[in-house]
Design a protein around this nucleic acid. Structure first.
Lengths: 241, 241
DNA sequence: CGAGCCCTTGAATCCTGTCAAATGCAGTGG
DNA sequence: CCACTGCATTTGACAGGATTCAAGGGCTCG
């Protein structure tokens, strides 16, 4: 196991594995893949799709319609699995792209079936990760469909902040923040101009600030009440790498 | 195996199982549950959550914010599993409700773990169903976030039409349609009034009609191009009941 | 036949999108 | 070293799609 895997595993938000499971997981790993910011990890229409675990950096899954609108479905953090849906359903109608430089753990997708046969606990973990990702998409759908602009932005900032903190429990109110306003807009179903104005409004209210690719949350409570944020206690999650 | 299970299994859109798997699945079933239209199947905050397979009728999963807006996350058809996310993640922040009278196959959730240990193929199926449900939520998120009102309505009508036809391959252009306009609105993130006006507009264009809880699609091609509908060839799906 | 629910419409309002332009910053190359 | 380019951010004016508010009609059911 390399450094990144070791670091993540020791975090409270990740699950422990038995020695036997770790051995199998290790055998599952093909190689590390490093990609620069902006590179495609999974591209629409390209099959077969590889199976990865994101080990470092941020990524996002998105889809573009003929009308030119891009919808970002979810943001991916270390520990998230990439390409599961595409492998299982044998479809590939959306893209996964690196938002920052990323490190990926490429898994041997040929052995996915063996995993189900030999390690039911890991199979269960994969289903868990799938359900977890669905929950995040659920939350995003609620956000886009049932909140206004201001609430959406507040929710997104808080959501990303919480997820980052769960993986990197650093002190302070600031986290790295690689999103452009265009990406925020595409995640929230808002126009770029309106996203900008909304961000400025929140900032003038003293709730947050974004400088130098870093997000600082000044008033978490206020943001939470604005967004009607419901805290979801995240249980220790499995890590496949 | 009862009638409903038998009917679904013989449809092209459902997968075959081995005799051994069928025996195990049969043992997994606790009982049939019948609920009237409008009844809650899974209620927010109520734990533990049962695990069901929807065998007959329509249902929907939804969530309501403090601002009063309800977001419908997805509609459920026969074959869909209900309560998996809640059981796996141990959360229950959304509701599942019957849209028509429904028949549910209640599964023994205590044996879920045994299923993973003894029947990897079925475990794989469950993950598949989870990924499939995520895909539907993905599609809904794209719909709500990246399309305008007219496109959203066109997409929803077509989507429901296709899903219904996949399960009940009846001839003709008409399917039962139990949704109220309020439910359409809540699924699409639109207001009731605007949903109504948009439906009427599509109807005046001769693309569809809704009468007596039945939807007729007159111009599938036009609706598809309006909505930028991308057909997703659905592979035979597993059935757990 | 009244109550309740759903559908339908119109008018006014407002949130959000579109269009356009200016600013600042980082990287490039002359 | 400094134009020059490209990208992201910021703003304003304007248009338009969507919401809100309100009221009327149709239908079912007790």
């Amino acid at each position: 196991m390399d450094d990144l895997s070791q670091y993540l595993r020791q975090q409270a938000s990740f699950k422990r594995n038995t020695a036997e499971e770790l051995t199998f997981i290790k055998a599952l790993k093909l190689r590390d893949v490093h990609l620069a910011a902006g590179k495609m990890i999974i591209e629409e229409g390209v099959t077969p799709t590889q199976l990865y675990t994101l080990m470092d950096g941020w990524a996002f899954r998105h889809q573009t319609l003929k009308n030119g609108n891009r919808q970002i479905l979810n943001f991916l953090f270390p520990g998230d699995i990439i390409g599961l849906q595409q492998n299982l359903l044998d479809i590939s109608n959306n893209n996964v792209q690196a938002l920052t430089p990323v490190t990926l753990c490429e898994l041997n997708r040929q052995q996915l079936w063996q995993l189900y046969e030999k390690h039911p606990a890991l199979a269960y973990d994969i289903t868990w990760l799938c359900a977890q990702e669905e929950k995040i998409v659920d939350d995003n759908l609620v956000n886009v469909g049932a909140r206004n602009g201001l609430e959406r932005v507040a929710m997104l900032l808080l959501h990303l902040y919480k997820r980052y903190k769960a993986i990197y429990p650093i002190p302070g109110k600031t986290i790295p923040f690689p999103l452009t306003q265009q990406e925020i807009a595409d995640a929230l179903g808002l126009s770029l101009a309106h996203t900008n104005k909304t961000l400025r409004k929140l900032e003038k209210l003293g709730l947050h600030s974004i400088d130098n690719n870093a997000l600082t949350i000044y008033d978490e409570h206020m943001l939470a009440s604005l967004a009607d944020y419901y805290s979801t206690p995240i249980k220790p999650r499995p890590l496949l790498c």
